[in-house]
Structure formats: structure tokens, C-alpha cells
């Protein structure tokens, strides 16, 4: 029962984390197109705070961030298999998401900006830990 609850909490944390990351990019893009600088500062701060809080709660406090960054020598065989599986899934998901975004940008003739690139790098870095948090019963 406790395990189910904790998975649910972790999944909610991941949803908030990834949605806030998307919001950061979307608000930035919207403000750039509409040229609203003051609105940008006011609205951008909300998803940034949500992102930081959900990141701390979901990844730092659960020890997932430490786990995913442990050297291979300190992991046992199950943990190595787990990180390998998560990296494999993360690579697939990241490739699909990035290709969709790049295709959309190419079709709409939208230039790529730094915020999008930074968010994609952050997304790639978060993804393996997010996959473990989403699928594993115990962390």
C-alpha cells in the first residue's frame, strides 16, 4: 500500500516537473513572439519555481538523483541493469521528442533559441531518473 502511494506521488512529481519545463519554453516563446518583456518575467517565474520544487521533491529527496549519478563500481548487478534499462528508454523518448520538436520548428520556420536548447538538455538529463521513478516500486 505504501509502495503504491509512493509511486503515485513520484509520478505526480514527474508530471509537474516535465509540465513546468514545457511551460518555461512555451511562455518564453509566446513572450518572444508577442514581444511582452514584463509579462515574461512575471509568468516565467511560476513554472521555474514549480520546476525547482518538483525536482527537489521527486529526484533529490528520494535519492534518485544520487542513485543515477553513482559510479558503476558502487552499483550492484540489479542496479546496473536498472540504470541501463532506463538509459535505453530515455534515449528512445528523447530522440522521438527532439525529432518532433525539430520537425515542427522546420515546418513553421521558427528559429531555435537558447531556452529551448537548454530545456532539451535538461530534459535529456532528467529523463533516465524520471523513468526509474515512474516504473520502479522501490527506490
Amino acid at each position: 500500500m505504501e509502495i503504491k502511494k509512493s509511486i503515485k506521488k513520484r509520478r505526480i512529481g514527474i508530471i509537474f516537473n516535465l509540465l513546468s519545463l514545457c511551460s518555461i519554453v512555451l511562455i518564453f516563446e509566446y513572450c518572444k513572439i508577442e514581444q511582452r518583456d514584463s509579462a515574461f518575467i512575471a509568468f516565467e517565474i511560476i513554472p521555474i519555481i514549480i520546476f525547482i520544487v518538483s525536482f527537489i521533491v521527486t529526484f533529490i529527496k528520494t535519492g534518485l538523483w544520487g542513485f543515477i549519478h553513482k559510479p558503476l563500481k558502487k552499483l550492484d548487478e540489479r542496479e546496473i541493469a536498472l540504470t541501463s534499462k532506463s538509459l535505453r528508454y530515455a534515449y528512445g523518448v528523447f530522440t522521438v521528442v527532439t525529432l518532433i520538436i525539430l520537425l515542427f520548428l522546420a515546418v513553421t520556420y521558427t528559429p531555435i533559441d537558447v531556452v529551448l536548447v537548454a530545456s532539451l538538455i535538461l530534459f535529456a538529463h532528467i529523463l533516465p531518473a524520471a523513468i526509474i521513478a515512474w516504473t520502479e516500486k522501490e527506490i
Binding site: 550492484d76 540489479r78 542496479e79 522501490e138 527506490i139
Partner: peptide, 15 residues
């Protein structure tokens, strides 16, 4: 020489 959680996985025959 494994993590204690791995023992849980072994005992539940999940690994």
C-alpha cells in the same frame, strides 16, 4: 555485496 533493496527484489522473485 549488494544493496539491501536487491535482497527484497530477490525474495519477492522479481529479479
Amino acid at each position: 555485496g549488494v544493496n539491501f533493496q536487491t535482497i527484497g527484489y530477490l525474495e519477492r522473485e522479481e529479479y
